[in-house]
Design a protein around this nucleic acid. Sequence first.
RNA 1: GGGGGUGUAGCUCAGUCGGUUAGAGCGCUGGCCUGUCACGCCAGAGGCCGCGGGUUCGAGUCCCGUCACUCCCGCCA
Length: 632
Amino acid sequence: MTRARGRGHSAPLCDPARGRSMHPYRTHHCAALGAHAVGETVRVSGWVHRKRDHGQLLFIDLRDHFGITQIVFQPETAPFATAERVRLESVLTVTGRVVARAPDAVNPKLATGAIEVACDTIEVLAGADTLPLEVNSERDYPEETRLAFRFLDLRRERMHANVLLRSQVIASIRRRMEDQGFVEFQTPILTASSPEGARDFLVPSRLHPGKFYALPQAPQQYKQLFMMAGFDRYFQIAPCFRDEDARADRSPGEFYQLDLEMSFVEQEDVFQAVEPVIAGVFREFSTKTVDTPFPRIPYREAMLKYGTDKPDLRIDIECAEVGDIFDGSDFKVFAGAVAKGQVVRAIPAPGAVGRPRSFFDGLIAFAQSLGAPGLGYIQFQAGEAKGPVAKFLDAGRLDAIKERCRLGDGDAVFFACDTDAKAAQLAGEVRTRLGAELELIDTSAFRFCWVVDFPMFEWDDEAKAVGFSHNPFSMPQGGLEALETRDPLEIRAWQYDIVCNGVELSSGAIRNHRPDIMVKAFEIAGYDRSVLEERFGGMFKALHYGAPPHGGIAPGIDRIVMLIAGTDNLREVTAFPLNQRAEERVLGAPSPVSDKQLKELNLQLSLTAREALAAERAEHPEAAPAGADGGD
RNA sequence: GGGGGUGUAGCUCAGUCGGUUAGAGCGCUGGCCUGUCACGCCAGAGGCCGCGGGUUCGAGUCCCGUCACUCCCGCCA
């Protein structure tokens, strides 16, 4: 295994002030030694990565953050006996002479493979118990084990690299943002609960009995206040907290955003500022291609062509509406549905002709597993149209489908027939699955896009009323006039998403900086002005004292690093993530607290909570008692 | 809150149609080995088959329940 961590300084780590005495731990790190150092007496410290015991000759691969150096032990010396006993992952300091390896003993796979250190003295700084997971292998371990022993997991090559990558990506983002005139500010971590959005994490107030702080779901309101305070361009690598359930691409509890906001800008100005930062970072840390500018795709078009508002553009398949072609046809199922106002979405399957029957049946079963009644399809082969749907369509209709979906000989096409929203969603799922099964995904590229023109309002079927579809503080396109004169469901917002390879990196918006427009927008969504004043009082008040037009976005740092690292799980790029049940297993969060702490906070536990704690204590009597904090 | 998958040695996994003493690799312990670099060879220890109940002459295997992990829906910008 070749380790290439950090920069390979070859200069000795000697402090001149120490004079001739050797540093107690090391003169070089474990990637620093090479042919140039042959003959020197050196000292290295690190972990026992691997051991090869030949009885009368013993090798230890000593590993530190920077790399690996082979230590060789000769028999019948004191260090030999110590080295034989020592377990993997123990921490050693070795002093010895750098010797050149014989030509046939050089290891080209190791950066330091031309030399080895012949051990004179060895000191075991810290022994290691038998390991719950192997540091020196790529083997997969249960996530439970990895998280409980995260300090070991993080010693492993891949995780160590991912954590470093994350740090480097963030440093690069900071540099790029500052180069563009953005200034980094902090915002409060102890803030107020807001009625919109996700469930809050709450922190009880000692000084205000019965009141709570909330951890910020995002610094949204504060960054807008920075704009109102006259700072032109804000950014922050911002921690965000949301008490919602986990997904593979959504950490429970906490995550980080590149939060940014700009004054006196329109949507396109935000794109111009963000695009070079994102494209630049992806290009810097990946060999995959990044095409700029990112295409701008209206929300309606995304739903029609890709069946989702976060399209994976690596898949070269575009869906099309073909309801009009089935209208009045002999294929009564679709014709009848179209007459009722439903739609038919066509999903091309390039080159799918000749696939076994099981391929088509599999897709139908897939559609049914998503709640669809089924999935029609046609195969075009040798000038003929085949399949259960084709015989009900005349030549004109078949040609129309072929033309609209840009199909040729050897291509197939699937049909999703349902209401607009349901057909779009099904088409999107089928498109993604076809991309994978037909191996149409271009894995050598990051394909970004901006999805724009999201609707401002949407029909809430449960409430039987118009509600906000995204952020209520976004500026409606057309401003006050649009709100006063147009059908609310036709009004679009200056609201946008940035999407990469089907992963939503962020959404953002041009904000509504006009209190009069805000009052009108809330009125349309069924909220009285008083709601605005009571629930968003701080923001609403600030808008009355000269708020500049402003807008921004907040791309997810974790997802960016995840994509660059080429993994599909956020926990692979987070040093100490919470598990699915929002627990941190190394230190044991969340944990019970002492009665004294509860009393100070004016909190009492419910019977349910007390019973749960008692049951847990009965099961794990060894668990640490509450309130045993070491300080520092 | 709901659905799917998984649960066998410290770890990764196999275990046939329900049938005798539950296996392999890695790791661990002991022995041998002077040029390895995933060193090699020999031997050994290590199992509440997640837990509880049921069906059966007989359950790792089938059924019910439950717990844990994980993926998804709900939720979430």
